[in-house]
Nucleic acid binder design. Structure first.
Lengths: 345, 345
DNA sequence: ACACTGGGCTAAATCGATTGAGCGTGTTAT
DNA sequence: ATAACACGCTCAATCGATTTAGCCCAGTGT
């Protein structure tokens, strides 16, 4: 039950716990501990496989070597993949990750923050839900390192790592236009957060640039909380009524529901309805026809997030870094009006 | 920076920290604290939004209200979904989750356990990598609640929640036979862990039951560590050389690679090569043709895992529970030799 | 011979909560 | 009248590591 403590080592080495602590924390020189004693202590610590009790250490120092990761939905492909990278990178620095999903619900998000706070995590990676300005500010006030991801809060000065949503959406929409689609719609979430706004803005800007009038009712907004069936129903109704010939789906799960919807209407993706989705996914790659998408550089996102956090934790604190990475347009078959010699399925 | 402590409350209430602790832990009656004092303390605690410091509490009591979740790969659809359920369920009981991925690598798994141990997690949910018998036994020795998932260790007496892999594979394979496929292969991992073994056994048993001779070289084993490209290459080579007319893919990512491979060979899934994969996935549902699969009851798996753990944590400790849930065969188009009026894509 | 310096190490306080032992005071039983 | 007990609460130790202050001894300078 009990682990090896610093006292056990002290006893065996015939020195005080203080000395052991100094040595194990690499302060031997600084604290003028003799080499003999140092080596002896290190040897014993090794033999006993001593691991410091993180609770005790944390209680005293206030550092827990734990990061809090708050995502929208850990079961979502994008977030799960980022989480994996974050975990790996954090591990390299000796940090563990506590996670939680907000379901894009502010109350749930606040609850998570609360819990992480009194668990004393050292740093936060947050996919903010709406109305969380105060909470984030509060973290800054108490000098806790915070990196926002996927989206940021325009009125809060903080680090963040996102992709260029405007460019991504712009490229996707332009591509649809260039492929000859005439009436292009967008299906997005009801969220008015910055990432969704920018995707919508990119969409509108691309239309404008190509001289296509923008009609408000090609924009369909669906709430995150709705279930799968309701989503597809709504999408089907939208497609029926607006008669768009191409759709930009502003996030991955909408793209997936979109595929389902279009197909269940008996329409052909590409010839009848062109589509592009934000985020890549195995499904998009392997679907027939394959789905054109705006792919986020997940590896780099994860790495940069942890990087920033580590810099902050090492007090190399600087002004807020705003990392805007470039997404990539993966052109596939879902944006071709004429059916090619398709890969056989 | 500093939070509200029990001392602050004690000062304001004009009582000792001990009394505050008793009241806040619901021991007022037991410890004979007067109602007046009790109420006063509770009121102050509320006003100050007191949250106990979990580190201090953990240091003293040995309980951290944290669970360790060790999965094979948090970015994998199946595990990510289970993780989500686990997180939700744990939250209901006031527990947080620390997670890590093993990549099916025993050393990484051991490292994770080590870390979780000295972080003093209260209970473990483990997808064991091979050769972890000793580590699990050790946890049992120190009376830490453990629930294994996805697979178990035959020589270790512990709780576990798995699906009936044999039945799942048996049903999948039988279905292939019944659909008229004659030469059926299986692609699995190099792992000789129980879940994979049972899937293979189920496969073999189904062949036997249908009077089909089992030839060892229809079994292809691929190591987890290999990258995507190598996987598909190997699968393609296998398909070319063995000339099977249907394949059972023993886990989700193999199924995905399988789709890629078959298609890149210019073969039609269904008519040319039938296929079933273990685990469900959006991709399998929406692929054309859709992919028949053995679907695991993810919600229930997650719920049962947390359930078991909570029972243990509340010392209702009993004999080891072995929960074997039933998977469902989702029959789709990938196991039809004749092309139906396919849903247009 | 005495103050001073610096090397090598330790005592004790501290972080915040929990908990076994115990201390007055008033009431009851004998 | 006095032991015995209930009541209502507090003291102080404890968990394990960190950290500040400082002790003791040897050598140096004057």
């Amino acid at each position: 039950m009990k682990g090896i403590s610093i006292k056990d080592i002290a006893r065996q080495a015939g020195v005080s716990p203080t000395t052991v602590s100094f040595v194990l924390n690499g302060k031997a020189k600084e604290k003028r501990i003799s080499d003999q004693v140092s080596k002896k202590i290190l040897k014993i610590a090794n033999k006993l496989k001593y691991k410091p009790n993180q609770l005790a250490r944390g209680l005293r120092t206030g550092k827990t070597k734990t990061l809090g990761l708050i995502v929208e939905d850990i079961a979502n492909n994008f977030f799960a993949n980022v989480a994996k990278v974050v975990e790996d990178e954090a591990d390299k620095h000796g940090y563990k990750v506590l996670y939680g999903s907000t379901e894009d619900n502010s109350d749930k998000a606040r609850g998570l923050l609360e819990v992480l706070k009194y668990r004393q995590v050292d740093g936060y990676i947050i996919t903010p839900a709406k109305n969380m300005e105060k909470e984030i500010e509060l973290l800054k006030m108490v000098r806790k390192p915070v990196v926002l991801m996927d989206r940021y809060l325009p009125n809060v000065d903080s680090h963040y790592v996102v992709v260029d949503n405007f460019q991504g959406a712009f490229a996707a929409t332009s591509h649809l236009v260039e492929q000859g689609y005439k009436k292009i719609g967008i299906i997005t979430t009801t969220s008015d957060q910055v990432q969704m706004k920018q995707r919508l803005d990119g969409f509108v800007a691309a239309l404008k640039k190509h001289g296509i009038p923008f009609n408000k009712n090609v924009v369909k907004r669906l709430p995150f909380e709705m279930d799968r069936a309701a989503h597809t129903q709504e999408i089907i109704r939208y497609l029926r009524t607006t008669k768009v010939d191409a759709v930009f789906f502003a996030t991955n799960y909408l793209g997936i529901y979109g595929i389902e919807s279009i197909r269940s209407m008996g329409l052909r993706i590409g010839p009848d309805v062109g589509m592009v989705s934000f985020d890549d996914h195995d499904l998009f790659r392997l679907h027939s026809p394959s789905i054109t998408c705006v792919s986020q550089p997940i590896e780099e996102i994860g790495r940069q997030i942890v990087n920033l956090l580590m810099k902050e934790l090492n007090h190399a604190s600087s002004t807020s870094q705003h990392l805007v990475l470039s997404p990539t347009l993966e052109v596939r078959q879902s944006t071709q009006k004429t059916v090619q010699a398709e890969l056989p399925a």
